[in-house]
Design a protein around this nucleic acid. Sequence first.
DNA 1: CCCTAAGCGGAAGATTGGTTCCGGTTGTGT
DNA 2: ACACAACCGGAACCAATCTTCCGCTTAGGG
Lengths: 192, 192
Amino acid sequence: MATTKRADAVRNRERILAAAREAFTESGEHAQMEEIARRACVGVGTLYRHFDTKEALVGELLAVKLSEFAERVRRTYEQQTDPWDAFAGALREQVDVMAADAAHQKMPFAATPAVVERAQPAIDELREAWLAVIDRAKEAGAVRPDLEVDDIRTVMCGLGSMMAADAGGSLTYDWRRQLEFFLDGARAGLPA
Amino acid sequence: MATTKRADAVRNRERILAAAREAFTESGEHAQMEEIARRACVGVGTLYRHFDTKEALVGELLAVKLSEFAERVRRTYEQQTDPWDAFAGALREQVDVMAADAAHQKMPFAATPAVVERAQPAIDELREAWLAVIDRAKEAGAVRPDLEVDDIRTVMCGLGSMMAADAGGSLTYDWRRQLEFFLDGARAGLPA
DNA sequence: CCCTAAGCGGAAGATTGGTTCCGGTTGTGT
DNA sequence: ACACAACCGGAACCAATCTTCCGCTTAGGG
């Protein structure tokens, strides 16, 4: 028979993904392959049979995360009928989720070409979701007309880095405050 | 003769600092000790006699950089008499300088306790310089009254990370645009 | 000019963390 | 029940880096 995988192999693949998700959430890019294997109750050899390299594993997880993000944004778009509240709400929510996930915070630095390629569909999906939110807000005059989807990506990069530096470091950064600055900037110059 | 160092030792120390400055500017935290030694035309052993550890070297350079920053801010404060222009100008200038220096961009991540301690005087000096700029702008009603010095540090962290991710990565971030968002946010809610 | 301690160079050591290899085990179709 | 291909575990391997060690060199005071 053709596409059938052995049952234990399937089970292990799931275990590995779950373990990796945990490990990366806690330790970010520094999570080690051996540690992931241990959590999955599996040898490193097994880990490497399922994912050729660490990058492949990262790409896989990243794609899943971004897809979740897209889903959240879409839901907010539907449930929040006020264009500004939807925009601000979606952004605040995404930032909050990121705050709990070390892997995500340093994402821009882990984004090697190989990883990005693997996650491309999810990236596009997320862009699409934001596009709807932003367009509606623009039409309603709730955000400045020159706002772009990429601005979201950029601010997420900045905020994530603040969180990461915060966690690892000897200095602290008030990223919530910084987010509010951005939101104020996003509607600067509009008639109140 | 008590504190006299041998002439060649003094010369080497200078060479090492210059080489390190170059290397860190180009490669950021990833600059290697061996590479620095080579640039200085010195053996690694010599490097380690002058700086016990890589962290010590980083701390030393960081202190110098921050001090330069403080000096720039003070100069802008004096030369730009318009409070808002001084504030915005100082920030834009600092960001521009950082854009040319990889070491600086990832500074928040290199800031281990040991490094921070060594650079503390310079950190305080920079805070002091910004405090003057911000206070004057507040008094003139040019920036929102709840703006703090730490907000500068935080936004610099975010922008630096964007630059670093930009340079190393497969994605690009428009950090200049993001800076303007912040500046708009810094005077949000004020009577135009 | 000589002697000696300070200084020097760079090979070797230690560590960290990803990846490979292969002998042993196990699921599955017959 | 059997055979065999797929799968598993984890020790060993390898590459990248920081750091140490030690024999050789040289500045500079007497």
